[in-house]
Design a protein around this nucleic acid. Sequence first.
DNA 1: TCGCCAATTGATATATGATTGATCTACATG
DNA 2: CATGTAGATCAATCATATATCAATTGGCGA
Lengths: 233, 233
Amino acid sequence: MSSHGALPLYLQISELLIRDIAAGRLIDGERLPPEREMAAGLGIAVGTLRQALKTLTDKGLVERIQGSGNYIRAKADPTSVYALLRIELLSGGGLPTARVLSVDRLPKDPTLPEFGRSAEGHRIRRLRFLSGTVAAVEEIWLDGALVGRIGPEDLSESLYLFYRQRLNLWIARAEDRVGLGPLPDWAPSDFPHAQGTPLPKITRTTWGQDGQSVEASFTWYDPDRVAYVARLK
Amino acid sequence: MSSHGALPLYLQISELLIRDIAAGRLIDGERLPPEREMAAGLGIAVGTLRQALKTLTDKGLVERIQGSGNYIRAKADPTSVYALLRIELLSGGGLPTARVLSVDRLPKDPTLPEFGRSAEGHRIRRLRFLSGTVAAVEEIWLDGALVGRIGPEDLSESLYLFYRQRLNLWIARAEDRVGLGPLPDWAPSDFPHAQGTPLPKITRTTWGQDGQSVEASFTWYDPDRVAYVARLK
DNA sequence: TCGCCAATTGATATATGATTGATCTACATG
DNA sequence: CATGTAGATCAATCATATATCAATTGGCGA
């Protein structure tokens, strides 16, 4: 079951929570669910969750009060390396939303980067917005072995939230490569560039908690409105 | 496996791992596969692998925890800050070198991002190579308050080595933005694109340990040969 | 407002099985 | 003698499961 590169489960969980705190999904002062409930939700044993929480209290990110609960004691870090959303408006930031263009289960295209074990994948095409302005078109391939079917209704929330809650899958590692690529012909007409125009293109490969690569995605973004941003601290 | 005159096998293996760590293929905190599995993968005996790992723990690059695993513990080296955000050959990696085109002390251009306190800056223009192939042209602005004069002879080594050794300057934070920009007219003729061609353009701002931004740089790279790579963990 | 009780919730302890590094012995090679 | 391989065994860690104790919280009645 285990494979190369996979951290111990309790460390995976603590990394996951650290990322949620940094990304602002867990807010300062917030009380976490009871340990038993939270462990069940994550599909792990309570003892394992407690080890993860222990590492967070050692880092000062969580306060644990017997009989009361576990509380977040840290603020979101807007410059977090762990913010997986990496395109921003030129003016900075922007609230991300998306319109799903299509969801299909297809045999994997041989031009895709190597990922997952299944011969099939789910292809999701989205138009992405930042604070309402058209920012990018995106094609995501999710390994077919993870889930039988995905409907557009599954994708109303954040994709990573969907991965975690429905697929019990969380992203442990990712690699982005930024190059140049022609805007694909399925780009909708409200994207402000002509099909075939060379645009900055992000190719992302992501790995799950067990070290298996599970997702590949391509993002063509509008350089007049957004930029790919990487911060390091 | 070994051949005459070559290094002992266990040293070959440790050198191999050191290169993987330096190249960012093995990330800080990552757990290596179990020794038995890893040795089988490398086609060597466990004892030999253990000798190799021993030399790495002596160098402080790996921590070995009984019952848990072997973990990468990359040294905190300011140059390693940049190992994760960089341009790489499409085939992966590449040995970076550079040819300095010009070094000047000039008043700051008002189009520059805000950085430093001085009204003047050092402008360094370089042609960058990866494993000998032309990869990018780069313009770096270093704040004028940090040093009076910079000559091309100062820049033979890594720039960040120069910063640290000569300027006692410690890079604590950096931000990259990747967009699109026309190749400037000072790009040398051996760069394989015409001046004015829209190319991926990296705008980097770096901050020193005191929170002051000290450097701004622009890099135009050839998307046919290299890509900007960001690895997230 | 105060005190009490029951429910909630974290803390602690123990046990078990699997994983994984540590150690040791033996042997072959050059 | 250092290197490399092979195998057996020991010890630490990881993850799970279960039970019990202790602190907090909230509701209820006087």
